[in-house]
Computed example of a mutant assay.
Amino acid sequence: MFTGIVQGKAVVNSVNVNNGIMRLVVKLPTDSILGLQVGASVAINGCCLTVVDTSDFPNVPFDVIDETLNITNLGNVKVGDEVNFERSAKVGDEIGGHTVSGHVSGLAIISDIQTNQDNIRMRFNVDVKFAQYIFNKGFAALDGCSLTLCDVIDNQFSVSFIPETLQSTIFSNRFIGKQVNFEVDPTTQSTVDTIKRLMPQMLKVV
């Protein structure tokens, strides 16, 4: 489990694909690897990945399977790119964002960017199948960041980024047309799916 509060930016050190599996190596800040062990979970751009080796700190390798490559933006990263990272939450940690599983739902595309003195507002499009899970003042994770949605119209929504978020994440260099990883709020999804499944039975009882 993650909180959606991105802990910083890591740099892609190497990318190698073999038989549909990517070995992704990222260089984490040295103050972020304390206690990191093989088998630990780290969210990279919001994707929950497993540490597979700890012999070359601060370079940390992950194996990314084809399913993840197909539905996320990790298949497009290159050496030198920056990515968001968050280590998994521990019992007792402050949940400053919302509960994030690290299981990316799909891709969101930036359709508009508006900049003013205090913040940047971006507009995103997602697949229409996700429209049922997004609403004004609801949550979603974008490249691992827990963010509040506004101006929701069908499968489109906007997000405002404060300077602190822009400084500590990769959103400061995102541009129109860029794909970002999108995870719907798990609580919202389970509630909507449960109601849809039970509604026909409830109507029959009435």
Rank of each mutant, 00 (worst) to 15 (best):
25 V>N: 04
10 A>S: 15
154 D>H: 03
173 N>P: 03
167 Q>F: 11
196 K>R: 15
103 H>R: 08
183 E>L: 10
115 T>Y: 09
131 A>L: 08
157 F>C: 14
119 N>T: 05
83 V>R: 00
55 S>D: 11
35 G>T: 04
97 G>S: 14
53 D>K: 04
128 V>G: 08
82 E>C: 05
51 V>S: 05
105 S>C: 10
56 D>F: 05
127 D>K: 03
125 N>W: 04
189 Q>I: 09
51 V>L: 06
87 R>I: 02
112 D>K: 01
123 R>W: 11
201 Q>N: 14
35 G>E: 09
184 V>Y: 12
131 A>G: 07
131 A>C: 09
166 L>K: 01
168 S>W: 07
88 S>A: 15
90 K>V: 12
150 C>R: 01
133 Y>Q: 14
93 D>S: 05
184 V>I: 11
55 S>M: 09
95 I>G: 07
143 D>V: 05
169 T>V: 12
92 G>V: 06
117 Q>N: 08
91 V>P: 10
1 M>G: 15
143 D>A: 09
193 D>I: 10
192 V>D: 07
44 I>L: 08
81 D>P: 01
153 I>V: 05
55 S>F: 06
188 T>Q: 13
185 D>T: 12
70 N>H: 08
186 P>A: 10
63 D>F: 00
155 N>E: 01
49 L>I: 01
71 I>P: 01
54 T>R: 03
61 P>W: 05
41 S>H: 04
104 V>T: 05
64 V>P: 00
45 N>S: 13
193 D>P: 14
189 Q>G: 11
150 C>Y: 04
122 M>Y: 01
147 L>Y: 06
173 N>H: 13
79 V>P: 02
121 R>N: 06
197 R>Y: 14
63 D>N: 02
197 R>A: 14
108 A>S: 02
32 S>G: 08
132 Q>T: 09
62 F>Q: 00
37 Q>E: 08
148 T>R: 08
178 K>V: 02
34 L>N: 15
198 L>S: 13
170 I>Y: 03
142 L>F: 07
147 L>A: 09
137 K>I: 04
204 K>M: 13
88 S>C: 15
53 D>M: 06
18 N>K: 02
127 D>S: 11
77 V>P: 00
1 M>Q: 15
99 T>I: 15
86 E>P: 03
24 L>W: 00
184 V>H: 10
133 Y>D: 12
130 F>D: 12
72 T>N: 11
5 I>E: 09
87 R>G: 00
